[in-house]
Design a protein around this nucleic acid. Structure first.
Lengths: 133, 133
DNA sequence: CAGGATCCGGACGGATACTG
DNA sequence: CAGTATCCGTCCGGATCCTG
């Protein structure tokens, strides 16, 4: 990281002090509201801006712009603009982006496998802890 | 290995239309600021509240309380309170929590493997896009 | 069509004081 | 020690309007 000039916060020496972590790095990238949804859509193939906008329900054009830009900046997505009228822009995952998409996909697999168990746990917890939100 | 080969799966249903994905479910749980850090620490063994507080630098007692409670509610962490004076509370990962910790660990592995490449990509992007964040 | 610029509410999380 | 209660600033993201 190139933030040596500012305060380094959670890089100290905690649960990730030794050899692991980097967990925060990746979560800071995919932990937001839209990034993985855009990546999953791009994992299906090349998409134009408007196609992404429709394929990811609920995202605003502003957030789609910010999300794709961040993905491009991190080298996870490649942007190709054609100087046509009207303009046409294509987005596609880079090899590194595809590799991250696979890793994320495994998390999604885990989620589906344990979804029922987690809901049960929640139900049990809520039953034993009334008056809490 | 599913995303790489089969580029186009099924067009219908957005990236996470309704039935599949589950990506948002798991990200809503681990995508916050502290959850995975607490989980990684608990992956090392049983911890008391104060131990967690010290092991995760920067976390406030409030956020530690909220984080552990959510983990307990989802069945990822088990809480054991001893009615001693002073009180003593132990936290440990459940089997499901350990399984999630492993999945998260793989993401962290990916992050470390590609950290340099992403920094390079950023540097290149920033060089070609002056005057932006 | 693909964004940029701006305004704004609300959630997330930090700091502090208090309790059993 | 292990929380609870309260106040408060920040910032993410939605809505809207404008541009090439």
């Amino acid at each position: 990281m190139s933030v040596a000039h500012t305060e380094v916060t959670h890089q100290a020496a905690g649960p990730c002090g030794d050899d692991d972590c980097g967990i925060r790095d990746v979560l800071d990238r995919i932990g937001d509201k839209w990034t993985v949804l855009v990546m999953v859509e791009l994992a299906k193939g090349v998409r134009r801006f408007r196609e992404l906008h429709r394929a990811v329900p609920g995202i605003s054009q502003r957030m789609l712009t910010l999300t794709t830009r961040r993905l491009c900046r991190d080298g996870l997505v490649e942007r190709t603009a054609f100087a046509t009228i009207p303009p046409q822009v294509e987005y596609r995952l880079t090899p590194m982006g595809r590799s991250l998409a696979e890793a994320v996909q495994r998390l999604a697999d885990w989620s589906r496998e344990h979804k029922d168990a987690m809901e049960d746990a929640r139900t049990r917890w809520d039953a034993g802890h009334p008056g809490e939100g």
